[in-house]
Design a protein around this nucleic acid. Structure first.
Lengths: 344, 344
DNA sequence: ATTTTCAGGACAAACGATTGCGCATCATAA
DNA sequence: TTATGATGCGCAATCGTTTGTCCTGAAAAT
């Protein structure tokens, strides 16, 4: 009689069947034919493995094979819908490819990012998908240098030698601001996110270039903020709304920023879009249902995750021949009610 | 000269220093004193390890120590803000305790839940936090039976022999429905979630008991729906609103359900709360900013995650003496504008 | 001058899997 | 009868750590 247990190992299985560990291993890995193992033996082992609910120890397997079928994911804030939707699409794609995910939340802090990175490396993940905090990439450079497959998403560093999957933030911002300009706005404020991040820089560049294209002077006092969080949106909007001549429109560079801005606008007793127009980066499930349905620049969240995982997988499969690629996904302006046409 | 590499192992370190692997290992684990290793040797090894950027291989370590400092997390939908905020608080707490997290998204499907479970077990996680899909717990029973620490959150099974951290869904629902009743509502509809889940059953029980308490007959045609997703909210609301005598209030049993319901209400050209009141389980960052600020039953998401992780840790630390506990966190009614007082 | 004692560290097994070789056994051919 | 080749499977090393036990030389005790 076979003894059932959670801790069934190859050895236990082999002992109970009277075969050697190697034979059992070979059968279980579908290599019976290669090693001339008889059909009889094969079926015996296979059925016993099923009956005993044998599950190979992936630690041992990983140690021996030097691969873990695990990838590491580092993102700045899993509770942010933008990142959690990306995480989800990565998870789905990873599972299809038989990979599991180790998750680290960097809390928008490079310190935690570094710490998480260390954890993941010590656990010998086969590859990494990172949405970097974005201040600094010194700690990231060693990753490709050591041959560890890496795909960076959302935020990038120009000099980092790895694949990148990002949104076309520059053109997204251009489209957003031009839309505002077309609606007669000239005093367009921008509440920006983390200054050093590429996302922010690209969006701000779009903001500025759109002004230039239309020969609208830029009032640098209308460019405020320094973080993608809600607090910053709130503070930024407060600041903007307290100016003697208020901006007619606010361009919020993230979903959390616009949430904070809405709180401030509310508090000031102002109405969107009558008193101030609002246009925000990032589409949300609730954008349609807000007090004023929000006009947004939507990113392809699902595709961001899916492509990142696919690209990472390519690299894992053929590390030598692999060349880093960069994919830039277009954004889409979703028009709703938060931008008003104004007179000149 | 010491050679630097990403793949520094104990052996490499030992060879370069002229010590044995065991000595190096002991020093690095702070056991120098126990084995009478000289201060000199200790500092030499320590500084070399730092210089070579030695990071122990956690696979090997896990194999030897039979513990991985990793916990598995299975949740139904990481892109749902409710779960992603829980995931975040778990991550934070886990990191404090020096644990990493393997994430599985079950996509609200028991099939994927089982698959994820298998992956996590094969990777030898030290413990599991699961928010079960909730249809069935056959696959979960084996976990505590095999001595694997397990904490279940949000959704529970009465007969499952493990710790549980849940919200007080019953009283939450009671409070919600009584609030509606106090506002004069008698025709209160309820769009429910996954029928078999404990969360749903507790909330529905609260819904029913609140009616009984106030001697209000229950119209079973007002109890619709069968999933926590948005589609179900939309469909449920459509159905309810098409009735010849519409309900005056809708109690949505999840954030996604209320989102769907709002879409339906919108589509029907109705206003909240003038035409129909809406009260929803789950607080959201955007609840305040909706067309009609939403009255909600807030759960303690952060505490759910934090406590789950703490309890799991307790069990991991002392598996023998450990007794499963159940914590039930109170909910809180957050009053906004989506419930209207009506005349009788 | 022996025997103890202790500092300082090395050896080797073990964790659970994979895999290059090698070793029987048996039938067939020379 | 003896090579010759299939056939069918086991041995043992290996991945990188940890840890119980053992070894060596020198100082201290007798």
């Amino acid at each position: 009689m076979l003894e059932k247990s959670d801790r069934t190992t190859l050895k236990i299985l082999a002992d109970q069947l009277g075969f050697s560990v190697s034979t059992v291993s070979r059968v279980l890995n579908g290599k019976a034919a290669n090693y001339r193992i008889s059909k009889d033996t094969e079926t015996t082992i296979l059925s016993a493995a099923k009956e005993l609910n044998f599950v190979p120890n992936q630690l041992a397997r990983g140690l021996r094979l030097q691969k873990t079928l695990t990838i590491g994911l580092i993102i700045p804030d899993i509770s942010n819908p933008f990142f959690s939707s990306i995480a989800r699409s990565i998870e789905i794609e990873a599972r299809k490819l038989n990979y599991s995910i180790m998750l680290c939340d960097s809390h928008e802090s490079t310190y935690y990012e570094i710490d998480g990175l260390k954890q993941l490396l010590s656990r010998k993940v086969d590859g990494l998908i990172i949405s970097p905090v974005g201040e600094n990439d010194d700690h990231l450079k060693q990753i490709p240098e050591n041959g560890m497959p890496l795909v960076v998403i959302d935020r990038q560093f120009p000099k980092l030698n790895c694949s990148k999957v990002i949104s076309d933030n520059y053109h997204g911002a251009i489209e957003a601001v031009e839309y505002l300009i077309e609606h007669g706005h000239k005093k367009i404020a921008c509440i920006q996110g983390l200054l050093k991040s590429s996302v922010n820089q690209d969006r701000v560049r779009g903001y500025i270039d759109a002004h230039k294209r239309h020969n609208i002077p830029i009032d640098s006092s209308l460019l405020v903020g320094n973080s993608f969080g809600e607090q910053n949106g709130y503070l930024g909007a407060k600041l903007l709304l307290s100016k003697t001549t208020r901006p007619t429109a606010i361009f919020a560079l993230s979903n959390l920023i616009s949430l904070g801005a809405m709180r401030a606008i509310n508090e000031e007793g102002l109405k969107i879009p009558e008193d101030v127009s609002l246009l925000s980066f990032d589409e949300n499930p609730y954008s349609d249902f807000l007090a004023t349905p929000l006009t947004t620049i939507a990113q392809q969240n699902n595709n961001l995750g899916k492509m990142a995982m696919k690209i990472l997988y390519e690299q894992i499969c053929s590390p030598e021949t692999y060349k880093p690629i960069k994919v830039k996904l277009p954004t889409k302006l979703i028009k709703r009610k938060s931008v008003q046409q104004i007179n000149n």
